[in-house]
Amino acid sequence: MAGLTKGWRIQVRVIIALMIRELTTRFGRENIGFLWVMVEPLLFAGLVAVVWAAMRGSETHGISIISFVITGYIPLTLFRSAVSRSVKVFEVNGSLLYHRQIKLIDFIFVRFLIEMIGSLFALMFIGAALYVVGIFPLPYSFGHMLLGWFLYSLFTFSMCLVIAPLSEVSDILEKFIPVVTYLMIPLSGTFFLVQWLTPSMREFILWSPPVTAMELLRFGLYGHSMRPYYDISLVVIFSLIMTVIGLALCRKVRRTLVVG
């Protein structure tokens, strides 16, 4: 037990140090510094929302387009950037493996965490700003929103845990990542509510873990003006299986990793 708490303390120390290091190398100390981390999702979601609103008017199925696109796009950018940042993450950070207390999973976790915090801040910031000007609703339930966000993050992190070690073993995988993240778009629940689909499609699409997360997130925002469909246990089980596979892969890759 004493060994466990000591190991925990060391890992917390390592993760904090890696976070600070990652933030300084990526964003520097000039101007707004680490706040840059929320600029990308903010711009992305904001611009897409404007385009959608211009094309389709202000409402769809009785829900405001701007908020709908923003709540869909910010989690999607989280998934996409977290996955693409976990590709070849060991190679980039190789020289840090000279310190035994730094584990491969720390690299993956830190990069994921930065993206996660960045997009969460972006969502809160843009939501608050648009609420003030009256084009974003006041959330019906912050609890549901948080639960949805948490499940989306859990799913994303577990995917990163698998993709990072695989990208180290196979160069081909790296080429497929953009395609896979693109295919994620129709399967992620970004651009629809499950209630808009036919019953058989509903059943099918709920097999995709991020759909449950998106439904909960949006239910938390819109409340009973929509009917949420979700399967929380599926997301949790899926993510746990991916996590176990990912950890096993990391362990295997670490044993043969060549550190320059």
């Binding site: 120390r13 390592v14 904090i16 140090a17 600070i20 290091r21 300084t24 190398t25 020289s95 840090l96 000279y98 310190h99 207390q101 730094i102 550190v259 320059g260």
Partner: peptide, 20 residues
């Protein structure tokens, strides 16, 4: 080689080592 972050300054590396 090894153990350092080339893009960070000497001070930053010292800070990093101190932290971990």
């Amino acid at each position: 080689g090894g153990g350092f972050q080339g893009s960070l300054t000497g001070y930053d590396n010292a800070r990093f080592i101190a932290r971990i």
